[in-house]
Design a protein around this nucleic acid. Structure first.
Lengths: 209, 209
DNA sequence: AGATCCATGTAAGGCGTTACATGATTGC
DNA sequence: GCAATCATGTAACGCCTTACATGGATCT
């Protein structure tokens, strides 16, 4: 409270990511979304409802400029361009940002309660999750190839792809080798005389009062 | 549009998780937060600002009941108990929920732009992320021990812990073995005559108009 | 003829995060 | 004495998600 709070470390938001995308060249909002989908599918996603307002704000702040070009079919396209100010702002953000890595997994939470699920349902969930992982891996590989065949093997892009493959590969492997334990545990729980107990120590202690 | 939309698959929210926690015994809001922190630290987190309102709502819906007990120091404690209706509601949620697994990684996004970062800053970010992973792994191990020594080795709990260890171990390993490529790429980019180009194909095609 | 891709935006709603407000006890 | 732990809640804000609205061109 008495110490001055240093203002570093707001999170990376969609506006920042749009600036980042534009460091690779001019693009429309539509392009940027496709770029996010292809490159960050496994670690970051944004919808049009985030991207278009973000670009509008950036235009207002003079960090990007927009020029209109006739679109082939449909409405005119707005092609955004990063200004010098915008480039500097982006570099500044990269410097003062504290990067988070958040996982929010309803899948794992469900698995914690696997013993309460019908076995068929449990199987279905596990299979679906494995399939989801497979799909994302396929997508990463596709993106990677498109990348390396175009010549420029950017270090960052490769690192991000490789990270995704390593982590999702490990996840897939773990599920395949440990899925049986979820079933066994369910069976064990129903035959054991002592069902789930002794969590929430303090609450149970209080219950005795 | 003409096909009837089946209403399965709302996401797992804090209310559901509170019900789940209470299947293991009565608890206060405070206890539940501690439970989340110890068990789901690497895959799900909720603050008091989510938990207390959730419990209030559940009470209103008769899915839980609350009784008040004198707290040692501080305000009275409210001990929540899962009703039969609540238990059934939870099981129903488990059945119709489509579990997601979302990763939102500002870390990976930053790494994509590693070539724009000062090398010292890049190093600092990588080291910090490795340390964060190490901390979480330590926490999982601590929680796991507390678990196995208390006898009951619940299958779900072990699966969740093991999953976390496998995935975070893979992440750590990957970072340690590939961090150098981020630096090299930066050097390569500055010596190459052709800097980053040829992303956003459609926008660049349009630029030629 | 119908679906899908291109292409841009708005508006409301939802859900969580953060900050604030309060206060006794225990350990250092 | 000061910090941390126990303990409960409210209120505002923020940011993203979803649904809505529009419409030509191209592919099947």
């Amino acid at each position: 409270m008495s110490l001055p709070v240093i203002h570093q470390g707001t999170a990376v938001d969609v506006k920042d990511l749009c600036l980042g995308a534009l460091t690779y060249g001019d693009a429309t909002g539509y392009d940027i979304k496709k770029f996010f989908e292809s490159t960050f599918s496994h670690c970051f996603l944004a919808g049009y409802g985030s991207i278009y307002p973000a670009l509008a704000e950036l235009t207002g702040e003079k960090l990007v400029t927009a020029r209109t070009a006739p679109g082939q079919g449909g409405p005119n396209r707005k092609i955004y361009h990063l200004t010098e100010t915008g480039r500097k702002a982006f570099l500044a953000r990269l410097k003062d940002t504290v990067p988070q890595h958040k996982v929010k997994s309803e899948f794992l939470v469900l698995m914690y309660f696997a013993h309460l699920l019908p076995p068929a349902r449990l199987e279905a969930i596990l299979n679906k999750h494995l399939q989801d992982i497979e799909d994302k891996l396929k997508q990463i590989r596709a993106h990677e190839n498109m990348h390396t065949e175009s010549g420029a093997a950017a270090g960052g892009a490769q690192f991000v792809c490789g990270f995704g493959k390593a982590v999702m590969g490990a996840a897939s492997e773990y599920i395949r080798t440990h899925r049986r334990s979820l079933h066994k545990a369910g069976a064990a729980a129903s035959t054991t005389t002592k069902p789930a107990r002794a969590r929430h120590r303090s609450a149970q202690a209080a219950s005795r009062n």
